[in-house]
Amino acid sequence: MPNIVAYVVRQRDHLAQRAAHQRVVSVLVRIVVLLKYVPDISSDRRFEEGRVVRDPAAGSLNELDEHAVEAALRIVESQPGGDHEVVAVTLAPATADIALRKAYQMGVHRGVRVTDDALAGSDYFGTAAALAAAVRRLDAENGAVRPVDLVITGMAALDGLGSVVPALVAEELGWAQLTLAKSVALDGDARGATLTITREVDDAHETLAAPLPAVLSVTDTANSPRYPNFKLIMAARSKAIEEWSAADLGLDPATVGLAGARTVTVEAAPSPARPEVQVVVDKGEGGKALAEFLIRNDLV
Protein backbone atom coordinates (compact mmCIF):
# COMPACT_ATOMS: atom_id res chain seq x y z
CA MET A 1 0.00 0.00 0.00
CA PRO A 2 2.79 2.54 0.73
CA ASN A 3 3.55 2.60 -3.00
CA ILE A 4 0.04 3.73 -3.79
CA VAL A 5 0.23 6.45 -1.14
CA ALA A 6 3.50 7.63 -2.63
CA TYR A 7 1.93 7.59 -6.08
CA VAL A 8 -1.05 9.63 -4.94
CA VAL A 9 1.23 12.17 -3.27
CA ARG A 10 3.32 12.40 -6.43
CA GLN A 11 0.21 12.90 -8.54
CA ARG A 12 -1.03 15.59 -6.20
CA ASP A 13 2.33 17.42 -6.33
CA HIS A 14 2.38 17.06 -10.07
CA LEU A 15 -1.08 18.55 -10.41
CA ALA A 16 -0.23 21.36 -8.03
CA GLN A 17 2.87 22.13 -10.09
CA ARG A 18 0.84 22.11 -13.28
CA ALA A 19 -1.69 24.43 -11.74
CA ALA A 20 1.15 26.74 -10.71
CA HIS A 21 2.42 26.78 -14.27
CA GLN A 22 -1.04 27.44 -15.65
CA ARG A 23 -1.27 30.56 -13.56
CA VAL A 24 1.88 31.77 -15.22
CA VAL A 25 0.13 31.93 -18.55
CA SER A 26 -1.21 35.40 -18.07
CA VAL A 27 2.21 36.55 -16.86
CA LEU A 28 4.65 35.06 -19.33
CA VAL A 29 3.81 35.32 -22.96
CA ARG A 30 6.46 37.39 -24.70
CA ILE A 31 10.17 36.80 -25.02
CA VAL A 32 12.68 38.86 -26.98
CA VAL A 33 15.81 37.08 -28.18
CA LEU A 34 18.76 39.30 -29.06
CA LEU A 35 20.83 37.94 -31.94
CA LYS A 36 24.04 38.79 -33.70
CA TYR A 37 25.28 38.03 -37.18
CA VAL A 38 28.99 37.17 -37.02
CA PRO A 39 31.71 36.12 -39.46
CA ASP A 40 32.23 32.33 -39.46
CA ILE A 41 35.09 31.43 -37.15
CA SER A 42 36.63 29.25 -39.83
CA SER A 43 36.52 32.04 -42.44
CA ASP A 44 39.19 34.64 -43.10
CA ARG A 45 38.07 37.10 -40.42
CA ARG A 46 39.43 40.60 -40.81
CA PHE A 47 39.10 44.30 -40.11
CA GLU A 48 38.76 47.18 -42.53
CA GLU A 49 39.01 50.75 -41.29
CA GLY A 50 38.77 49.62 -37.71
CA ARG A 51 35.59 47.59 -38.21
CA VAL A 52 34.94 43.90 -38.54
CA VAL A 53 34.24 42.96 -42.16
CA ARG A 54 30.81 41.32 -42.36
CA ASP A 55 30.96 39.35 -45.55
CA PRO A 56 27.47 38.01 -46.30
CA ALA A 57 28.95 34.88 -47.89
CA ALA A 58 30.98 33.96 -44.81
CA GLY A 59 28.75 34.80 -41.91
CA SER A 60 25.87 33.35 -39.97
CA LEU A 61 23.86 33.56 -36.80
CA ASN A 62 26.29 33.61 -33.87
CA GLU A 63 26.33 29.93 -32.89
CA LEU A 64 25.93 30.76 -29.19
CA ASP A 65 22.70 32.64 -29.95
CA GLU A 66 21.08 29.39 -31.10
CA HIS A 67 21.11 28.41 -27.43
CA ALA A 68 19.21 31.61 -26.62
CA VAL A 69 16.57 30.85 -29.30
CA GLU A 70 16.29 27.29 -28.00
CA ALA A 71 15.87 28.51 -24.41
CA ALA A 72 13.09 30.89 -25.49
CA LEU A 73 11.25 28.23 -27.49
CA ARG A 74 11.47 25.72 -24.64
CA ILE A 75 10.03 28.22 -22.18
CA VAL A 76 7.01 29.04 -24.36
CA GLU A 77 6.51 25.37 -25.24
CA SER A 78 6.44 24.46 -21.55
CA GLN A 79 3.64 26.93 -20.91
CA PRO A 80 0.00 26.08 -21.54
CA GLY A 81 -1.88 28.04 -24.14
CA GLY A 82 -0.67 28.89 -27.61
CA ASP A 83 -0.69 32.63 -27.57
CA HIS A 84 2.99 33.17 -26.85
CA GLU A 85 5.39 35.22 -28.87
CA VAL A 86 9.13 34.97 -29.35
CA VAL A 87 10.58 37.98 -31.16
CA ALA A 88 14.11 37.90 -32.56
CA VAL A 89 15.86 41.27 -32.66
CA THR A 90 19.20 42.10 -34.25
CA LEU A 91 21.15 45.31 -34.68
CA ALA A 92 22.83 45.19 -38.08
CA PRO A 93 22.65 46.01 -41.79
CA ALA A 94 20.55 43.86 -44.13
CA THR A 95 23.35 41.26 -44.48
CA ALA A 96 22.28 40.04 -41.05
CA ASP A 97 18.96 38.76 -42.37
CA ILE A 98 20.58 35.31 -42.64
CA ALA A 99 20.70 35.32 -38.83
CA LEU A 100 17.02 36.22 -38.53
CA ARG A 101 16.05 33.60 -41.14
CA LYS A 102 17.87 30.99 -39.08
CA ALA A 103 15.87 32.07 -36.02
CA TYR A 104 12.66 31.77 -38.09
CA GLN A 105 13.74 28.26 -39.13
CA MET A 106 14.07 27.32 -35.49
CA GLY A 107 10.58 28.62 -34.77
CA VAL A 108 10.58 32.24 -33.58
CA HIS A 109 7.45 34.17 -34.45
CA ARG A 110 8.73 37.60 -35.45
CA GLY A 111 12.01 39.04 -36.69
CA VAL A 112 13.09 42.64 -36.24
CA ARG A 113 16.21 44.24 -37.66
CA VAL A 114 17.33 47.56 -36.25
CA THR A 115 19.22 49.25 -39.07
CA ASP A 116 20.51 52.79 -39.33
CA ASP A 117 23.70 54.42 -40.58
CA ALA A 118 23.63 56.43 -37.37
CA LEU A 119 24.07 53.17 -35.43
CA ALA A 120 27.16 51.96 -37.31
CA GLY A 121 30.29 51.98 -35.17
CA SER A 122 28.36 51.72 -31.90
CA ASP A 123 30.42 50.69 -28.87
CA TYR A 124 29.05 48.40 -26.14
CA PHE A 125 26.92 51.21 -24.71
CA GLY A 126 25.47 52.32 -28.05
CA THR A 127 24.67 48.70 -28.87
CA ALA A 128 22.99 48.13 -25.52
CA ALA A 129 21.04 51.40 -25.79
CA ALA A 130 19.70 50.48 -29.24
CA LEU A 131 18.78 46.91 -28.24
CA ALA A 132 17.12 48.09 -25.02
CA ALA A 133 15.16 50.69 -27.01
CA ALA A 134 13.88 47.94 -29.31
CA VAL A 135 12.80 45.91 -26.27
CA ARG A 136 11.03 48.97 -24.85
CA ARG A 137 9.19 49.50 -28.13
CA LEU A 138 8.03 45.87 -28.15
CA ASP A 139 7.07 46.22 -24.50
CA ALA A 140 4.85 49.22 -25.25
CA GLU A 141 3.21 47.83 -28.40
CA ASN A 142 -0.60 47.90 -28.53
CA GLY A 143 -0.88 49.94 -25.39
CA ALA A 144 1.37 47.58 -23.43
CA VAL A 145 -1.35 44.92 -23.19
CA ARG A 146 1.29 42.25 -23.65
CA PRO A 147 4.50 43.53 -22.12
CA VAL A 148 7.81 41.77 -22.67
CA ASP A 149 8.55 39.33 -19.86
CA LEU A 150 11.99 38.18 -20.70
CA VAL A 151 14.99 39.06 -22.86
CA ILE A 152 17.28 36.15 -23.71
CA THR A 153 20.78 36.31 -25.21
CA GLY A 154 23.68 33.98 -25.84
CA MET A 155 26.71 34.09 -23.56
CA ALA A 156 28.94 35.94 -26.02
CA ALA A 157 29.26 36.83 -29.67
CA LEU A 158 31.99 34.77 -31.26
CA ASP A 159 33.51 37.79 -33.04
CA GLY A 160 33.97 40.25 -30.19
CA LEU A 161 33.70 37.87 -27.19
CA GLY A 162 33.00 40.82 -24.91
CA SER A 163 30.14 39.15 -23.00
CA VAL A 164 29.03 42.48 -21.54
CA VAL A 165 26.04 43.49 -23.69
CA PRO A 166 23.49 41.35 -21.74
CA ALA A 167 24.45 43.04 -18.45
CA LEU A 168 24.33 46.47 -20.12
CA VAL A 169 20.88 45.81 -21.63
CA ALA A 170 19.63 44.83 -18.16
CA GLU A 171 21.13 48.02 -16.75
CA GLU A 172 19.50 50.12 -19.51
CA LEU A 173 16.10 48.53 -18.91
CA GLY A 174 16.43 48.51 -15.13
CA TRP A 175 15.59 44.80 -15.14
CA ALA A 176 17.11 41.93 -13.18
CA GLN A 177 20.06 40.27 -14.88
CA LEU A 178 20.57 36.52 -14.76
CA THR A 179 23.59 35.83 -16.93
CA LEU A 180 25.58 32.76 -18.00
CA ALA A 181 22.89 30.27 -17.05
CA LYS A 182 23.62 26.59 -17.47
CA SER A 183 20.09 25.67 -16.39
CA VAL A 184 16.88 27.68 -16.38
CA ALA A 185 13.63 27.08 -14.49
CA LEU A 186 10.49 29.16 -14.47
CA ASP A 187 7.99 29.00 -11.66
CA GLY A 188 4.97 31.08 -11.00
CA ASP A 189 2.02 31.74 -8.82
CA ALA A 190 -0.69 34.36 -8.72
CA ARG A 191 1.80 37.00 -7.63
CA GLY A 192 4.02 36.60 -10.65
CA ALA A 193 6.74 34.50 -12.17
CA THR A 194 10.22 33.78 -10.86
CA LEU A 195 13.14 32.73 -12.99
CA THR A 196 15.80 30.60 -11.34
CA ILE A 197 19.14 29.77 -12.93
CA THR A 198 22.23 27.84 -11.99
CA ARG A 199 25.59 28.97 -13.21
CA GLU A 200 29.31 28.48 -12.78
CA VAL A 201 31.03 31.77 -12.70
CA ASP A 202 34.74 32.19 -12.05
CA ASP A 203 35.31 30.55 -8.67
CA ALA A 204 31.79 29.54 -7.59
CA HIS A 205 28.66 27.54 -8.37
CA GLU A 206 25.62 29.76 -7.95
CA THR A 207 21.84 29.49 -7.94
CA LEU A 208 20.22 32.85 -8.62
CA ALA A 209 16.56 33.84 -8.76
CA ALA A 210 14.72 36.96 -9.87
CA PRO A 211 11.19 38.06 -10.64
CA LEU A 212 10.29 38.88 -14.23
CA PRO A 213 10.89 40.93 -16.25
CA ALA A 214 14.52 39.94 -16.53
CA VAL A 215 17.45 39.65 -18.90
CA LEU A 216 18.76 36.11 -19.17
CA SER A 217 21.90 34.89 -20.95
CA VAL A 218 22.49 31.19 -21.50
CA THR A 219 25.73 29.30 -22.03
CA ASP A 220 26.39 26.66 -24.65
CA THR A 221 25.80 23.96 -22.03
CA ALA A 222 22.25 25.14 -21.22
CA ASN A 223 20.62 23.15 -24.05
CA SER A 224 21.12 21.58 -27.46
CA PRO A 225 19.64 23.80 -30.17
CA ARG A 226 17.07 22.02 -32.34
CA TYR A 227 17.51 21.31 -36.03
CA PRO A 228 14.96 23.22 -38.10
CA ASN A 229 12.28 21.01 -39.66
CA PHE A 230 11.40 21.15 -43.34
CA LYS A 231 8.13 22.99 -42.82
CA LEU A 232 9.78 25.77 -40.84
CA ILE A 233 12.67 26.03 -43.31
CA MET A 234 10.18 26.56 -46.14
CA ALA A 235 8.10 29.03 -44.13
CA ALA A 236 11.18 31.02 -43.05
CA ARG A 237 11.95 31.97 -46.65
CA SER A 238 8.91 34.18 -47.01
CA LYS A 239 8.57 35.51 -43.48
CA ALA A 240 8.70 39.27 -43.23
CA ILE A 241 11.51 41.01 -41.39
CA GLU A 242 10.52 44.27 -39.78
CA GLU A 243 13.02 47.09 -40.10
CA TRP A 244 13.31 49.79 -37.46
CA SER A 245 15.46 52.92 -37.58
CA ALA A 246 17.14 54.87 -34.80
CA ALA A 247 14.34 57.44 -35.07
CA ASP A 248 11.68 54.70 -34.74
CA LEU A 249 13.30 53.83 -31.41
CA GLY A 250 13.60 57.42 -30.26
CA LEU A 251 17.40 57.19 -30.07
CA ASP A 252 19.44 60.39 -29.97
CA PRO A 253 21.97 60.04 -32.84
CA ALA A 254 24.62 61.81 -30.73
CA THR A 255 24.58 59.03 -28.11
CA VAL A 256 24.83 56.02 -30.43
CA GLY A 257 26.95 54.88 -33.38
CA LEU A 258 30.39 56.31 -34.00
CA ALA A 259 29.22 59.74 -32.77
CA GLY A 260 28.45 58.40 -29.32
CA ALA A 261 31.26 55.85 -29.06
CA ARG A 262 33.56 56.36 -26.10
CA THR A 263 36.17 54.04 -27.53
CA VAL A 264 37.48 54.04 -31.07
CA THR A 265 39.50 51.34 -32.81
CA VAL A 266 42.40 53.23 -34.34
CA GLU A 267 44.53 50.36 -35.59
CA ALA A 268 43.86 46.78 -36.63
CA ALA A 269 46.50 44.53 -38.10
CA PRO A 270 47.06 40.81 -38.54
CA SER A 271 49.29 39.48 -35.76
CA PRO A 272 52.83 38.66 -36.89
CA ALA A 273 53.14 35.07 -38.06
CA ARG A 274 54.60 32.63 -35.57
CA PRO A 275 58.08 31.39 -36.34
CA GLU A 276 58.18 28.09 -38.24
CA VAL A 277 57.21 25.18 -36.02
CA GLN A 278 59.93 22.72 -34.98
CA VAL A 279 58.53 19.22 -35.40
CA VAL A 280 60.05 16.18 -33.70
CA VAL A 281 58.72 12.74 -34.55
CA ASP A 282 58.87 10.54 -31.47
CA LYS A 283 61.12 7.55 -31.95
CA GLY A 284 61.57 6.94 -28.26
CA GLU A 285 63.20 10.28 -27.39
CA GLY A 286 60.29 12.67 -28.07
CA GLY A 287 59.67 13.43 -24.39
CA LYS A 288 63.33 14.24 -23.80
CA ALA A 289 63.32 16.52 -26.85
CA LEU A 290 60.29 18.32 -25.43
CA ALA A 291 61.99 18.79 -22.05
CA GLU A 292 65.15 20.05 -23.75
CA PHE A 293 63.15 22.58 -25.77
CA LEU A 294 61.59 23.92 -22.57
CA ILE A 295 64.91 24.04 -20.71
CA ARG A 296 66.66 25.71 -23.66
CA ASN A 297 63.96 28.40 -23.75
CA ASP A 298 64.06 28.98 -20.00
CA LEU A 299 60.49 27.76 -19.53
CA VAL A 300 61.13 25.28 -16.72
Partner: peptide, 23 residues
Protein backbone atom coordinates in the same frame (compact mmCIF):
# COMPACT_ATOMS: atom_id res chain seq x y z
CA UNK B 1 50.80 21.55 -35.03
CA UNK B 2 50.92 24.49 -37.41
CA UNK B 3 50.06 26.84 -34.55
CA UNK B 4 52.84 25.49 -32.35
CA UNK B 5 56.39 26.64 -31.74
CA UNK B 6 57.40 23.08 -30.95
CA UNK B 7 55.50 19.90 -31.77
CA UNK B 8 56.12 16.28 -30.94
CA UNK B 9 54.40 13.79 -33.22
CA UNK B 10 53.86 10.75 -31.05
CA UNK B 11 51.81 9.05 -28.38
CA UNK B 12 51.19 11.35 -25.44
CA UNK B 13 51.22 8.38 -23.04
CA UNK B 14 54.90 7.89 -23.94
CA UNK B 15 56.00 11.46 -24.54
CA UNK B 16 54.50 13.22 -21.52
CA UNK B 17 55.89 10.95 -18.75
CA UNK B 18 59.34 10.98 -20.39
CA UNK B 19 59.27 14.79 -20.56
CA UNK B 20 58.06 14.99 -16.93
CA UNK B 21 60.91 12.73 -15.77
CA UNK B 22 63.51 14.77 -17.69
CA UNK B 23 62.15 18.01 -16.21
Amino acid sequence: VEQSDFAVVGDLADVLPQAAAAI
